[in-house]
Every structure is written in C-alpha cells, then in structure tokens.
Amino acid sequence: MYRFDRDLEVRRTPAIGLAAVAFAAGALAVYGVYRAGQPRRRARYAGHVPDSALRDGRRLGWREQTVVGRTVTIARPRSELYAFWRDFANLPRFMENVRDVAVSDTRRSRWTVAAPGERELSFETTITEDRPGELIAWRSDEDAPVRNSGRVVFRDAPDGRGTEVEATIAYDPPAGAVGRLAAKLFQREPNIQARRELKRFKQLMETGEIATAQPGAAAPRA
C-alpha cells in the first residue's frame, strides 16, 4: 500500500545538515586561499596552475604569490578568441574590476582597476609573450601597487567543440596600507573572480552579450 513514510521526514534532516556543511566548507576553503597572515614566500594555489606561471613569480622574487588557473571551453574558433583578447582594450568588457585599459603600443598598456571605496589604481603592463592564435602573457611593471601577471592559452577543443581557454593570473600584494587595500581587492576570492571573468568572456564570445538579471543601469558593459 502506498503510504506516507514518516520515517523519511526524520531521516531527511542529516542530509540537510550535510549540504549546509558542504557549503560552509567550500566557503572556508576559498577564504583560506586569501586570508591574511599566511607564511610568506609561499605560492598558494587555487585550481589547476601551470608551472610556467609559478616559475615566473619565483624568478621575480615575489613574496606572496596567489595563483589562479581555470579552463573553459568556448564554442568559437581559436583565432577569433585570441584576437579579441589580444586587444587589451576589450578586457574591461568582461573583467569586472578592470575599469579601463589604454593601449600605448603593441606591447605596452595602462590598466585602471577599481579599488575599494570608489578608488582606482593604475599601473603599466607589458606583453611578455605573444604567439598568435595560441598564447598571450603579460606582466605589470615592478612598481605596480599590486604586481600581477597573466597568461592565457588557446587550444583547439576536440571534435569541433571550439577552443579550450586556460587563463592563469598571479598576484603579489605588497606590504603597507595601500598594499593591504589593494590586496583586499585583488585577493577577494581570486578563484571565484577568475572563474567568473572567464565565464563572462565565454558568454560574450558565444552569445554576443553577458547575461544579467539586473535592470538597465546595473548591466555589465556588453
């Protein structure tokens, strides 16, 4: 006979707790990646990170690297994705905190990023490696408030699925008040931030826009 199983109601509770714990654990893990007061000279990893990105930071003597790596598949050809990214003036369209990128010449650009409290920070960036259709790497100047470097690799996905895009971002926040402020910005959930930026890039390239449920004024710059 089909009957209401009262036991079920009781047994259900532990599973709820488990889900909540899983959420909390996830949040803690993310928090742990960027919380202050960690031992210095240690790279922290968030996601899969290619060795090259770490070597780069070590070579430059960065004290406290935060490295974030993430891959997405985008259903567009490699050449198109490369070309869009290679024009750094496009980056603010999908990078939330990047307000503006002024391209000076083929290798140099000036980035303006949002900082907490309506502030903005600026720094110069140089392209350190550029293989058309395959790879772009860049690095901020040594005097940047937050030294950072990025690397994006484009690979053909199997069977016409488009392109696998792997982005790696590394940060080295300095000491001092400005440094702490900037670190707060740059290190705010770096894994989440990087993932969201890559997803926005994917949305923009696949659909021509960035999905939002916000009314007009709050819409991203698409």
């Binding site: 259903a75 994917k202 949305q203 659909t207 999905a211 939002t212 449920a213």
Partner: peptide
C-alpha cells in the same frame, strides 16, 4: 542562449550562458 555546447545539442535546460555568473 542557443549558441553554447549544450544548446547546440538541444539540451537547452543545461545552457551554459543564461545563468548570470
């Protein structure tokens, strides 16, 4: 979105691009 891997396979409720990041 009609453009992603999943929409291409007619798996529309799995769309990768319609849920804001």
């Amino acid at each position: 979105c009609g453009k992603c891997f999943f929409c291409d396979r007619q798996q529309f409720s799995a769309c990768d691009n319609s849920n804001p990041v």
